[in-house]
């Protein structure tokens, strides 16, 4: 009879312990993830959601009162050339930057994949522009292109030709923005292509050798099919990155001449921080977000279905 009393306590204790043991992982996970996800929601999740909502309001100036106007901002977006024009420019300039960077990077990767002496050095040299600060290096490009005392124009003058005022010409402005972006991105593209080239199964090349395939045939029938997964990855991430470029536009042309190089993200900055048109900035951000999200989702659907690969688009390595 007396034994039952002290027994009760240990039994309850083991039950609690069993609960703790059974859900041990969950407790540890909650302790680890809880605080950091909560804080992420506060500092990152909430502003993002807020940004989605912002586009449905008319809100001029931070002191002003937001007024709900439904879809008016979006209707304006697709009617005003200031906005849809900026979107189109983002797309075609982004495509231009992407295509040039990726093809130059692919060429470089093919060369770096050869058994060359000192190829590690080349890899580093080509990647260096990617780690430099945009502010600092666009400045050098601006000096290079200065109409009065730029290095290029001084060279042209010394050859006896008329100097070119790059900043007044749309094609030249676009050209130099593309040159800067390629300068900065080509090394990173080459590294990823190179990793792709080296992941192609070596035995396939040996088999091709036995079958008597030449260099060009091997490129066409072994290398390119083997590169397909990484090609999708790099094309998508590079496109997503390129339609969002704005720093080089901001620092090199300021959107000029006459707003002809103004891309959408730069327009968002102007709306938000110069004109304080918060509603339109929110609406434009949402349009950009939807485009990026759609492109990425399509990419995921295709890749995860085909080979269950989990890759996520890298935010640009600055």
């Amino acid at each position: 009879m007396e034994q039952t009393v002290p027994l009760e306590h240990p039994i309850r204790k083991t039950r609690f312990k069993r609960l703790l043991v059974r859900h041990r992982d969950a407790f540890i996970a909650a302790a680890i993830l809880g605080p950091m996800i909560f804080w992420w929601l506060v500092t990152s999740g909430f502003p993002t959601l807020f940004g989605f909502v912002l586009g449905f309001f008319e809100w001029i100036g931070i002191q002003g009162n937001p007024k709900f106007i439904g879809l008016d901002n979006y209707i304006r977006f697709f009617q005003d050339p200031l906005y849809y024009g900026a979107l189109l420019r983002s797309i075609w300039m982004g495509a231009l930057v992407s295509i040039t960077t990726l093809s130059a990077g692919f060429g470089a990767a093919l060369l770096m994949n050869m058994p060359l002496f000192g190829k590690g050095v080349y890899r580093s040299i080509w990647y260096i522009p990617a780690v430099t600060s945009t502010v600092a290096t666009t400045q050098i490009f601006n000096l290079l292109l200065d109409p009065n005392n730029g290095m290029i124009n001084n060279f042209i003058k010394s050859m006896g030709y008329e100097p070119i005022v790059w900043q007044f010409s749309v094609p030249w402005s676009v050209f130099w923005i593309v040159v800067y972006s390629v300068w900065k991105g080509v090394g990173g593209a080459a590294l990823i292509w190179l990793a792709g080239l080296q992941s192609v199964d070596v035995t396939l090349y040996e088999a091709a050798d036995i079958d008597g395939a030449g260099r060009r045939q091997k490129l066409r029938h072994v290398t390119i099919p083997g590169l397909k997964p990484i090609a999708t990855y790099i094309i998508i991430t590079s496109l997503i990155g390129a339609i969002q470029i704005y720093e080089q536009v901001m620092f090199m042309t300021g959107g000029g001449p006459y707003g002809q190089t103004e891309v959408l993200v730069f327009r968002i900055y102007r709306d938000a921080f110069w004109d304080f048109n918060l509603g339109m900035a929110g609406a434009s951000s949402l349009v950009m977000a939807v485009i990026v999200f759609t492109v990425t989702t399509i990419y995921y659907r295709r890749t995860t279905r085909s080979d269950r690969r989990m890759t996520i688009p890298l935010k640009k390595v600055k």
Partner: peptide
């Protein structure tokens, strides 16, 4: 676990510009 993981990953596709002004306000 999987749902949480994929949700977190999906947020990485939303371009950062959208949070720019809300962060200022926050």
């Amino acid at each position: 676990k999987d749902g949480l993981f994929l949700t977190l990953l999906a947020t990485q596709m939303i371009p950062g510009t959208i949070a720019l002004i809300p962060t200022y306000l926050q």
